[in-house]
């Protein structure tokens, strides 16, 4: 394995690669968060559980 100075500990990814992986995680969290919120609102409309 090469000793690329850009590689950061402990994953062996370069900084840009690590940021890209992170961006997928953030994207996923955002999309699934919005979806979950929407699903909760829709369920609350059909069968209200508060008040």
């Amino acid at each position: 394995m090469s000793n690329d100075p850009d590689k950061v500990w402990p994953t062996g990814l370069t900084l840009r690669e690590a940021e890209e992986v992170h961006s997928y995680l953030i994207d996923g969290t955002r999309v699934f968060g919005v979806i979950a919120l929407l699903a909760h609102i829709l369920v609350a409309v059909t069968t209200p559980w508060l008040g």
Binding site: A39, L42, T46
Partner: peptide, 15 residues
């Protein structure tokens, strides 16, 4: 992700 998200809200949306 979009496919999953669509299916996740679809039944409630239809109801």
């Amino acid at each position: 992700m979009y496919q999953f998200g669509g299916f996740a809200i679809m039944p409630f949306a239809l109801l």
